[in-house]
Amino acid sequence: MRAWLGRNRIAVGVVAIVLVVVASAVYVVRTVVDQRAGTGPGAAVASGLVYVDNGGGQNAVTSVDGSGHRVSGSLKCLRVYTAGGTTVCLRMSLPGAYEAAVFRGDREVRSVPLPGTPSRARVSASGQVVSWTVFVTGDSYLAPGGFSTRTGVLDLRDGSLLETLEGFQTTIEGVPDDRVNENYWGVTVASDDNTFYATLGSGNQTWLVKGDLRGRTMETVRAGAECPSLSPDEERVAYKKRGGRLGGWQLFVLELGSGVERELPGSDGVDDQAAWIDGGTLAYAKVREGGYPTIYSSAADGGGGPRVLVEAASSPSPA
């Protein structure tokens, strides 16, 4: 056997290569043919929901209405958010390059190249201020191969693009701060299109910050809170915070007036910037064990556990 293999090694090698190529082609073709968008069970969302369908293999931006009817469009995004008639779509534009494509209705009005892998995206309620966060390689402040984040803000009223928040005057717990090592992520802009909340990370600490886009200032509100999301009435902020026994992330809602913080039960392990789909409900994506990401909803008052909205989907946004 061994001698035979030795004599015919070239032929054996060629046959083995052909078999591998055929097997992989069959597997890939079958996977691609089998994929169908929006097949998993999901709930109807009374106020409507826009999301990225991860089950159909095309990352199609899909909407579901109050009767549970789903429509997938031609837009393909890694992350999407839509508000006030503006849609922001973070997607791959070239091998290894990403862009934020901004749409008013169905028309693409702006495309901004991104300096890294996209992570978060938001549009203000008026549809005028668009923001995103990306992970940047290279200028790591931690270790080789480490990452830092960069947050961009696009104002559609005058077309001005803020490529990073790092030049803002920051006050940390009452003390003006000028350290170099600062990262910002997860912006949410209020209806005045000027006030915003975001996350500031520096060293091993993170803070929820409140800022002023025109004034280019921000100050810390609370420690440990990340990826804020401002409620439609602007009286509450939802965010993720390390908690629980294993130190994983959970969602919390903070009443800005009273300072009361409520935990959303069953949101353990979330790593998303939650979206308010109405005045009392938050939607967020979380991966089920060994599966696709799933969009869940939770009552913002902390009453009751999470409900599955759409399976094999991520990036929820109110329609």
Binding site: V52, N54, L78, R79, M92, T117, P118, S119, F135, T137, S140, L142, A143, P144, G145, G146, F147, D271, D272, A285, K286, V287, Y292, P293, S314
Partner: peptide, 21 residues
């Protein structure tokens, strides 16, 4: 990066660190 952030909905920060080490 796309797989970890979007398919797994995880943060890339810890992983980048591990890879370097």
């Amino acid at each position: 990066p796309v797989y970890v952030i979007f398919s797994l909905q995880m943060s890339y920060l810890q992983l980048g660190l591990l890879d370097g080490i």
